[in-house]
């Protein structure tokens, strides 16, 4: 067990070093896209933990992102917390909100939970307009600081990419360890049969709340990362479509595949804009079509994914391999 932990750690350090190396060799656009991909990896990870493992659905993880984002900004504004600490506070704040909702949610199943979280996703951004301290539609500014002087002069986008990819790496490492631990196994067993899981001594209600809290906290981190790359926080950054996009990203490569699933989902979400842009110029598509092409493709992809590879391409490939093996055995007989 210890050796797999160490192996994972080493792998993540290597990936981090590679990203660090490339960050000096690509342009501003790629760095910005890299930050966005990292943000999505974290946010999609929160869905994979919640839905792919504990079997609960949340249409409101965008709301937890908003909580994380506002907590980060407010803690910087009023508590003068240093930049790095605001991220931790963001995670704690969102996790706390997740605890409150999670205790209520533990009693709710499937569609009822979807309803509660959907209502939350709609309700939350409008709170910003109720309290002047939250800055209304205009939002509040966020100072993402500068790189420590030891790195010399670092361009803004490079610095943002460092932070967000580091946050994504740490999140993936921790999540991977949690999902492979006894907690991950407990969630999976509750998901497939909660009565049987309870009989083996798992407290289903507690486990579900734990999953909800962790998922909310991770979403909060994604919210802080998003705010950092935008430089401000405002309600319009957290529309309902964000929560839906996260689910799309989580489903495309298999709802229970953290890696590479969340990365594939994030790259698809970010890359689609560029792909559609390229298609538009190549084929001279009209404005009206072009503006809606991205959503059409992403939604169609979501439908196709859930119909043809419901549990991800990984499972599909395994299934086909098993099928072939089975067939060749039959042929010998």
């Amino acid at each position: 067990m210890h050796s797999t932990h160490r192996r994972r750690l080493i792998l993540f350090i290597v990936v981090g070093a590679v990203l660090f190396y490339f960050s000096s060799r690509v342009g501003i656009l790629r760095l910005y896209q890299g930050s966005t991909v990292s943000m999505y990896v974290i946010a999609i990870g929160s869905i994979i933990l919640l839905t792919g493992y504990s079997g609960q659905i949340s249409l409101g993880n965008g709301a937890f992102m908003a909580i994380g984002a506002y907590v980060a900004v407010l803690s910087q504004l009023y508590l003068d917390l240093p930049f790095f600490l605001t991220f931790f506070v963001a995670v704690l704040g969102a996790a706390l909100a997740g605890l409150v909702l999670g205790i209520a949610a533990a009693r709710l199943t499937g569609p009822y939970l979807a309803g509660a979280t959907l209502a939350l996703a709609v309700a939350l951004p409008s709170i910003a307009n109720l309290f002047p301290v939250l800055g209304g539609e205009q939002g509040l500014g966020y100072d993402s600081g500068n790189a420590p002087s030891l790195f010399g002069e670092v361009a803004r986008f490079k610095w943002l990419f460092w932070i967000s990819s580091l946050a994504a790496l740490i999140t993936c490492l921790l999540l991977q360890n949690i999902l492979k631990s006894r907690y991950g196994r407990a969630w999976k067993s509750i998901r497939s049969n909660s009565v049987a899981a309870e009989l083996t001594g798992i407290n289903a209600a507690k486990s579900k709340v734990l999953a909800f809290v962790l998922s909310a906290g991770i979403a909060g981190l994604a919210g802080a990362v998003l705010t950092m790359s935008l430089g401000t926080v405002s309600p319009s950054a957290f529309p309902l479509s964000l929560s839906f996009a996260l689910i799309t990203g989580a489903v495309i490569a298999g709802i229970s595949s953290l890696l590479p699933g969340s990365l594939v989902g994030a790259v698809v979400l970010v890359g689609m804009s560029q792909l559609v842009g390229a298609l538009t110029t190549r084929f001279e598509i009209g404005d009206v079509l072009a503006q809606n092409l991205k959503e059409l493709i992403v939604s169609a992809l979501l439908i196709l994914a859930v119909v043809f590879t419901p549990n991800g391409p990984g499972e599909k490939i395994r299934e086909m391999r098993d099928h072939r093996k089975h067939h060749s055995h039959g042929g010998h007989r």
């Binding site: 689910i247 799309t248 959503e295 059409l296 939604s299 169609a300 979501l302 439908i303 859930v306 119909v307």
Partner: peptide, 12 residues
């Protein structure tokens, strides 16, 4: 999830 996909297709 599929119905969310349909919603997106109908929107766009």
């Amino acid at each position: 999830i599929a119905s969310l996909g349909v919603l997106g297709v109908l929107h766009s």
